[in-house]
Design a protein around this nucleic acid. Structure first.
Lengths: 389, 389
DNA sequence: GCAGTTATTTCACCACACGAATAAACATGG
DNA sequence: CCATGTTTATTCGTGTGGTGAAATAACTGC
């Protein structure tokens, strides 16, 4: 039973249910501005194909005939999400609701395209043993074109590798590739903190600093996505120097390696991330000092983002999220420094930044590609969409 | 003959022609993904109501039956655009194509709402003598709610003034109000440099520094629009001090008053803007010094914008645009400083920033309100629009 | 049980966009 | 200057597919 809504209308209904949880027919009719009669017909079709089911009604009981929420059958489809790094292939299998049902990692002996594709195919094989995979999504740091070919990925030494096509040929399963931050953002937008929001931004802290933004309901993206344009954003004229000669740029203040370098130098011994965090919590002076100045820098970056793109809130994620948690006060200070007091306060939300969540993002790329049937021509949407309201 | 496209389809067709110039039926069919037959019918209707006309065919002659471009009849409707300042009401009458057909100014003796409304009504009366005005648009610096009421406008001393409603009551003509930058952006988007583009940003230099951004086909806007959030953006740690204690912020580096203060102090005599510009062109050291550092600061601001919102290009406007012209090289340097060399180069476009162009922006607010029939419920557009492609 | 309320279904209707064929209006070339 | 090819516009019958109104179903509250 493939995802095959007959027409455009059925597609909208299916998507609305997929994205905004179980919804009754009346509610769907309201949201999509359709007559109740139409929804009876369409939902019947979709239930018939096995895409939707009537849930045991958990809606609040009011007067009148109770509504029957319709939900997508989460286990109708499975997707494989791959996060590529220089030395490992991390894989997660998710269902239609982007819930992770399986996670594992494979080591990577070489970064040659053939090897990588072979490993991904191996992951697909392993995942396919337990779950029928409908599509594969791959996320990686670098510039990825819309057709899933990797324009450039410095950490792999790749230039113009048609990754999606290669994986599709090797596995026989539809494959999609995207920049890892794009994948992260799409996952946030469809199933994460950004679900149901048309305007929000996100920052990820880790080996580098990432930025993404959903504006007017769509991800802001262009050919430069993946270059990492906020990496060298100036945050502190007195901060440390990065390898490109910027003083106090985002890379030098906010990345995990930079912070670990700082604290290790201060204590004159190697310190890892979890130890750094506990040192900060314990009040160790060097650690709190670093956390405070980095937190303030993060706040300034958040303020800059908020000032320019006017998001409803800013999500912070990535392996280094906890910096925002342990230095929350400094972050607030940093925001206040560069935020007009007359403006609304900036809401900051933290989210997990584990490898599994990066894989989930990649799986969402697969899910979107499958559900929206990419490779179709540009969608039927007239000038109005870019204008009204 | 009012703007009354019968149905949704007719509306899209009319808008497409209004926004994207004369278009043949085939071309419209292609763009809106409709059958040629449909376009024959719809365009017949629209020609019937007097909204469209067949133009004397100026399309390039190829083989086959020549196409007949359809165009909107520009003089079918007129709009009054008002730009409010603390001491004057500036007014422009435009046609449906947002072409200015009349411009005049009225002095303002007081900033009391009653007085202002009375003066606007006077302007409407004067304009209405020559042209039948279909709607009035008002642009002003400050925070304006979606319904056209002014939440706060410091330079007028206003809080919660239902301006649009008052003007509508006083004149009997539909009235709309918006932040002046919003108006400027909408005008750029529909009829200016941003016409046909879904992603671009703009900066205005004048008494203050303004910023606006069209992302994914719509203006980025929220409750903070109008607060002027980029005004105190840090651009130069060694720059002059602004009145809020920021060193080298946008206000202190880029506004016309700040620059004039600088040059006047340096030369120990009052200097006005045009003289400043000629001094720079003549190579006067103090003037070129100021222009260079301000230009570089502008470049940095442009780079910041480009890095975050990924626009196709950045428009610079406002009364102080010419700063960007006379210090073009410094602007480029400033951009290079904070732009990753791997990223695409930032295109910068200059546009006029006269009072007339601000009024034109306000007129576009009126035009949009009229044409899109604001006060209707949210438009019929299902979940898809926020998702696909 | 009865009244009130809200959700869903049934079904005939009809607007409206479409497909295919046709006509119109040019360029080109011998 | 006519034949041919090409592209645009129109005509018209057809059928999809969303709708409106009324009926029905399934509750709550009293």
């Amino acid at each position: 039973m493939p995802w095959k809504p007959a027409d455009d209308l059925a597609q909208s209904v299916a998507l609305e249910v997929l994205l905004h949880g179980p919804l009754a027919r009346v509610e769907l009719a309201r949201r999509l501005d359709l007559a109740p009669a139409t929804l009876t017909r369409i939902s019947a079709e979709l239930i018939d194909v096995g895409l939707l089911v009537e849930t045991p009604q958990l809606a609040e009981r009011r007067a009148g005939r109770p509504s029957i929420p319709l939900d997508v059958v989460a286990e109708a489809h499975y997707f494989l999400g791959i996060k590529l790094t220089g030395d490992a292939v991390m894989a997660a299998v998710t269902n239609l609701r982007a819930g992770v049902v399986n996670y594992f990692e494979l080591a990577l002996s070489s970064t040659e395209p053939e090897t990588v594709v072979e490993r991904i195919a191996a992951a697909a094989g392993r995942a396919g043993g337990s779950y029928p995979i409908d599509a594969i999504g791959i996320g990686l740091g670098g510039v990825v074109a819309g057709d899933g070919s990797v324009s450039s990925a410095p950490f792999l030494g790749w230039t113009d590798v048609p990754l999606a096509r290669l994986v599709q040929q090797a596995t026989g399963i539809p494959a999609f590739a995207a920049n890892d931050l794009t994948a992260f953002m799409e996952a946030q937008h469809w199933f994460g903190l950004g679900a149901g929001h048309d305007n929000f931004a996100a920052l990820t802290l880790g080996v580098g600093v990432g930025f993404g933004c959903v504006a007017n309901g769509r991800l802001l993206a262009n050919d430069d996505s993946g270059v990492g344009l906020v990496g060298h954003w100036p945050l502190d004229p007195l901060g440390p120097m990065c390898n490109r000669g910027h003083r106090g740029c985002a890379e030098s203040m906010l990345t995990v390696p930079a912070i670990l370098r700082d604290i290790s130098t201060a204590l004159d011994r190697p310190v890892d991330w979890t130890e750094f965090l506990s040192l900060v919590r314990a009040g160790q002076p060097a650690a709190t000092g670093i956390a405070t100045s980095s937190g303030r820098a993060l706040g300034r970056l958040i303020a800059a983002v908020a000032n320019l793109v006017a998001p409803s809130f800013v999500v912070v994620g990535g392996e280094g999220v906890d910096l925002a948690a342990v230095s929350a006060r400094a972050v607030d200070e940093g925001i206040r420094e560069q935020r007009d007091p007359r403006a609304s306060t900036v809401k900051v939300e933290l989210t997990s930044g584990t490898n599994e969540s990066w894989c989930r993002g990649a799986a969402v790329i697969a899910l979107q590609g499958y559900v929206l049937d990419r490779r179709r021509v540009a969608s039927h949407r007239p000038a109005l969409s870019s204008i009204d309201t």
